[in-house]
Amino acid sequence: MSSSPTERPGFAWITPALLFFALFGLGPVVVVGYLSFTSWSGLGDPEWVGLANWSALPGDGQVRGGLAITLSLTVLCWVTQTPLALAFGVWAAGPQKSRAVVSAIFFLPLLLSTAAIALVWQALFEPHFGIPAQLEDWFGLTPSNVLGDPTWALYAIVFVLLWQFLPFHMLLYQAAARQVPHSLYEAAELDGASGFQRFLHITVPQLRHTVIASSVLILVGSMTYFETVLLLTAGGPGNATRILPLHMYEQGFVSFEMGYASAIAVLLVILGTGLSLLVVRVTGYSRMSSQREGL
């Protein structure tokens, strides 16, 4: 008996992906969950300590501080990346050749590795040999201490992440904007809507799913922006940019407190999952309702 065309593929189809996910996704999470109840330096066998790691979490100032910095970083990344990516992406979706050329240049950071980007920007921010020194030569500004200033260091990281990830989200919006049916714009034009009104009332609502998908990627991704911070500031100056994932790394692989690091890791898993569930729930993304009824 052949299956009807509307029937979804059977369970067997997802087995390879599921196995892969179980092995590399769920498996480690389970192991980390177990390790979070142990004390283990990586030497010898993990020693069961019950809830000791968990009860130490609330009292650890760096966990609280790290959480606050992680949240600021997440919010700042979303606030900077989403509007800019939306605007540039919709602009780049236009049919003009010149836009295609400019977009191609904009997309270049996508080709670079995170480590390379972080090291290049670290060199550019260097007060005596980087951009600040040039600004001093040209405009007589005093060399600024961007990465060494507890307030500015976080903004510097947000900027580098923006530079790095903007092209990716632009690409999402560009592709999605090209999918918006022309008939909608034509109808709006007949009704006398201005270019901005068309953007606001047609493009943005039509891109809703893309906004949500891109936001989830930004929000959840910024819980794990680890390499950039490690290489740019290593959490410094002092604790100013010690995001929670970096604190976890340092607890685990510098201090060799694998058990405690695992507890932080589980916390991050819970936060990341919770955050993406929340976004999906609040935005109604999970209902997968069509945006183009009647078309």
Partner: peptide, 13 residues
Amino acid sequence: GPNFSSIDYDNGS
């Protein structure tokens, strides 16, 4: 100096 907290040893500056 005023900028010591940004200076890194590993990159040679």
